[in-house]
Design a protein around this nucleic acid. Structure first.
Length: 426
RNA sequence: GGAGGGAUGGCCGAGCGGUUUAAGGCGGCUGUCUUGAAAACAGCUGUGGCAGCAAUGUCACCGGGGGUUCGAAUCCCUCUCCCUCCGCCA
């Protein structure tokens, strides 16, 4: 949610930003009109309420003094006022709801540093790092490797739950668990994050807080009976931890890391990435979430990226950092960088992390504030999050980069302590 | 799932239709006194919206929503959450 004052005071600027974002459906003019109407009603209705409050008190006084005739006359007069108030309040409620809805559909403003572009083709590769391995045999895609090793079972996954589900077995399951634990340990012990184990189903307002609703409900699973939603990422419960709170002075910055499964319907991507484990309806992820002071936003984003990048580097897999252009920016993000691992088997760069700075956009929606100093007025925090990292795609990168001619896969050095010392999956 | 009891300001806790601008206490802040501190005494004490250059004014908020009334923390309906007991359960 944007600060409505920005729209009110500088609508032209906001419209230009919306054009950069390709957000041509953003209801800026609607917001302006509704805001004006709202304020005009407020002025009228508040004046009437002030009068009613004063006269009601007067009625009480008259009754106590036994002047019931005067009281009755005043009552009759106030009944008229009350009726007018009721009508104005009803209209105000409609306007408020419409304004809220319109505001909810306006995306965040991009930082000035975000490159302007129409879609993902204009994203900018910031840098490419790591050692590309030379293969003296044609590297296989992970779906062939995994199936041959008996560690990924696609058919039975489909039997259980339909397309885009798979089963990990034996050292495949172990490898994923090792990655999760290792990543968590690195972030907790070396990057200063506090681990969180959140609920994996949440109520609707949590999804509103992070910006997934109302616009992106199509991609979510929902339990209609209890009105709970399966989380598409741990970002949702973790960001909402401090919803409707005013954090006391000295609380910031807060760094959290959480492991969670993620559930996505992926209806928007029907037919895309159907092979392998790149895009499933359920996947695991380690997610970092930060709450920081506004002045620290951009510096914290850089540190967040560095923390995610550290995982890639230690895995010794080639990766690149890509900055999203305005046309490819997520709804709630002010800036967003992806980390992509190279997968030589399927010949693709795999998005394993998405690091975003939201400024106060999510904090407004979720009402997360902090008090800069004792007695100071509350301010909205800035929120950030980034994957650290998404498991299936890291698994793909490990399997494909560490494969050997005989179809076995070497376990990366850093994971061996988490694999009971296993050095090769064969 | 069944039965009952609750939800009031940072915290505790009164209030059950109109001198409540939410009593009182605790905590916190400021001041007086003091060499300093404590104690005592006095004053202050939340969030948001709107109008205004500002001082300030005004409205809303007693778990959420709706209703009754000239007037609701207070009465009615409804939802959510918490607690106690029973049942079931990894």
């Amino acid at each position: 949610m944007l600060d409505i004052k920005i729209i009110r005071e500088n609508p032209q600027f906001v419209k230009e930003q919306m054009a950069k974002l390709q957000a041509f459906d953003a209801p800026v003019d609607q917001v302006l009109a509704l805001d004006e109407e709202r304020r005009s009603i407020l002025v009228q209705v508040e004046e009437l309420k002030a009068r009613r409050n004063a006269e009601s008190k007067r009625i009480g006084q008259l009754l106590r003094e036994g002047r019931s005739e005067e009281a009755d006359a005043l009552k009759a007069e106030m009944a008229q006022v009350a009726a007018t108030i009721e009508a104005l309040d009803a209209r105000l409620k409609e306007v408020d709801a419409a304004l809220f809805d319109a505001m909810s559909r306006i995306p965040n403003l991009p930082l000035p540093s975000v490159p302007v572009g129409k879609d993902d083709s204009e994203n900018v590769v910031v840098r490419t790092e790591g050692r590309f391995r030379e293969f003296d045999f044609p590297p296989l895609p992970h779906w062939e490797l995994g199936e041959a090793l008996g560690i990924i079972d696609f058919e039975r996954g489909v039997k259980l739950s339909g397309s885009r589900f798979y089963v990990l077995k034996g050292l495949g399951a172990r490898l994923q668990r090792a990655l999760i634990t290792w990543m968590l340990d690195v972030h907790i012990h070396e990057h200063g994050y506090t681990e969180v184990y959140p609920p994996f189903v949440v109520r609707e307002h949590c999804l509103f807080g992070t910006g997934n609703l109302p616009k992106f409900g199509d991609n979510l699973y929902r339990d209609v009976e209890d009105d709970l939603w399966l989380i598409p990422t741990a970002e949702v419960p973790v960001t909402n931890l401090y919803r409707d709170e005013i954090l006391p002075p000295g609380s910031l910055p807060i760094y959290h890391v959480a492991y969670s499964p993620c559930f996505r319907r992926e209806r928007m991507s029907a037919g895309k990435d159907v092979r392998g484990i790149k895009r499933g309806h359920q996947f695991d992820k380690v997610e970092m979430v930060k709450f920081v002071e506004p002045e620290q936003g951009e510096a914290e984003l850089e540190k967040l990226i560095a923390d995610a990048e550290d995982i890639c580097r230690r895995l010794d897999v080639p990766y690149r950092l890509v900055q999203m252009c305005t046309g490819d920016l997520a709804f709630a993000a002010a800036a967003k960088f992806d980390l992509e691992l190279w997968a030589p088997g399927c010949g693709e760069w795999l998005e394993v992390s998405s690091c975003s700075l939201f400024n106060d956009f999510q904090a407004r929606r979720a009402n997360i504030r902090y008090r800069p100093a004792e007695g100071a007025r509350p301010r909205y925090v800035y929120t950030l999050n980034g994957s650290g990292l998404a498991l299936p795609r890291v698994m793909i990168a490990v399997l494909e980069n560490y494969q050997q001619r005989d179809g076995s896969v070497v376990v990366p050095e850093v994971l061996r302590p988490y694999m009971g010392g296993v050095e090769v999956i064969r």
